[in-house]
C-alpha cells in the first residue's frame, strides 16, 4: 500500500477530533476488510494521510439485549452477531444476514458499523488503479456511470438515477426490517435516526466528522415472524445479487403488519411498501404472495443486463412470505 499514518482513537470523541484535525484527509478504520481493499487498489483519487483506528475505543463492540431491545456497538463483529444465541432467538433475520456475509475470517474481522458503511462493489468504481488507471465515474464526482451502457448485471434495477451501484450491505435490510435506529456520534454530539434514513443514493448521511456508534433494535413482539434470504451465485463469499429481509406480525393466521426490504437491487435498502400493503390484513397464501411479489418489483427499471434480478426478487418475496427456500 502507499504510505499513510495511523492513529489509535481512545474514544469516539478522540476519533471525531482526529477527523476534524486532519480535515478530510483522515479515514476511519474498524475491521479494515473494506477500507484496505480500497486503499490497495487506489480506486479513489484521494488517498488518506492517516487512518484513524476505532478498534481501540473501549466498549464499543458490545452486544446488549434487554427487555427493550438490542443495542449493538458499531464495533461488534459480524461473527459475534451471527453466533449470539439471543440474536438467533429473537432477531433471526439479523443473525442470518450477518452469517451470510463473505467468509468466516471476514466475519471475524468485520464490524456491523463497517458493514453498514462499506463502499459499493460496482466493478467500474472498484477498477484497480494499477491496471491502467482507475475509472473516474459519477460516484467519484467526475464522469458517467459506466454501468448504464456497460455490463450492469450486478447493478440497480430500482431507484438508480446517476449511479447504479447497489448498497452492498446484507445486515442493512435485516436491520431496516427490524426497525433499527442508528446512533451517530459527531462534533455536535449524538444523533439517532431510523436506519432507513441513514442511507442515501450515494452512500449515507455521515458527515465528515461523524462516526457510527451504535445500532438500536426494538424488541420484536411474540407474533413476529422473520425471514432473510440472499440470492448469490455461490453459497458463501458473494455479495447479494438480490436479497430480502422481512418482519411480519402474524396474529390468528393473518398478517397484521409487515416490513419488507430488498437488498442488492437499489442504491439503498429498498423498502417494498407496495408488497407490504398487499399482505397486510390478510392471510399469507400463494395468491397473496404472488401478488406481493409482483408488487415488490412494480416500477422497477432494469438496465440492459439485469432484468433477471426482477425475477429473482419475485421468487425471493414469495419464498420469504411462504417460508420456502
Amino acid at each position: 500500500m502507499m504510505p499513510f499514518d495511523h492513529v489509535n482513537a481512545g474514544s469516539p470523541g478522540e476519533a471525531v477530533d482526529l477527523l476534524t484535525s486532519y480535515g478530510g484527509k483522515g479515514r476511519l478504520i474498524a475491521g479494515g476488510t473494506d477500507v484496505l481493499g480500497i486503499l490497495k487498489d487506489r480506486i479513489l483519487p484521494d488517498y488518506p494521510d492517516v487512518l484513524i483506528n476505532l478498534k481501540t475505543i473501549p466498549g464499543m463492540d458490545s452486544i446488549k439485549e434487554s427487555g427493550e431491545g438490542l443495542n449493538i456497538g458499531a464495533l461488534a463483529k459480524l461473527a459475534d452477531i451471527a453466533s449470539s444465541p439471543e440474536i438467533k432467538a429473537e432477531y433471526p433475520a439479523l443473525s442470518l444476514a450477518a452469517e451470510s456475509v463473505a467468509s468466516p475470517e471476514i466475519r471475524t474481522m468485520a464490524t456491523i458499523g463497517g458493514n453498514l458503511c462499506q463502499d459499493v462493489r460496482c466493478w467500474y468504481y472498484r477498477y484497480p488503479h494499477h491496471m491502467g488507471g482507475r475509472m473516474l465515474c459519477f460516484r467519484k464526482g467526475v464522469g458517467p456511470c459506466y454501468a448504464v451502457k456497460g455490463d450492469n448485471r450486478y447493478h440497480a434495477v430500482m431507484g438508480g438515477k446517476k449511479c447504479f451501484a447497489v448498497c452492498p450491505s446484507d445486515t442493512a435490510i435485516a436491520l431496516c426490517a427490524l426497525q433499527a435506529k442508528i446512533s451517530i456520534f459527531g462534533g455536535e454530539g449524538t444523533r439517532t435516526l431510523p436506519l432507513e434514513k441513514f442511507f442515501t443514493p450515494m452512500g449515507n448521511v455521515l458527515r465528515s466528522n461523524e462516526l457510527v456508534k451504535e445500532i438500536l433494535i426494538p424488541k420484536p413482539t411474540q407474533e413476529t415472524r422473520q425471514a432473510f434470504i440472499k440470492f448469490t451465485e455461490r453459497k458463501p463469499v458473494d455479495f447479494a445479487v438480490a436479497s430480502i429481509a422481512c418482519v411480519l406480525e402474524i396474529l390468528g393466521g393473518r398478517c397484521m403488519d409487515a416490513r419488507i426490504y430488498l437488498g442488492g437491487v437499489a442504491p439503498m435498502p429498498w423498502h417494498a411498501e407496495a408488497a407490504e400493503r398487499i399482505i397486510k390484513g390478510g392471510s399469507l397464501d400463494d395468491p397473496t404472495a404472488e401478488e406481493a411479489a409482483l408488487a415488490s418489483v412494480a416500477g422497477a427499471k432494469p438496465l440492459k443486463g439485469n432484468a433477471y434480478k426482477i425475477e429473482i426478487v419475485k421468487a425471493l418475496v414469495k419464498r420469504a412470505l411462504l417460508r420456502r427456500q
Partner: peptide, 13 residues
Amino acid sequence: GKAILSCITLSVE
C-alpha cells in the same frame, strides 16, 4: 486464537 486474514490486517493494529 482466531483465524483472520493477515493481508487485510495492519501490523500496527
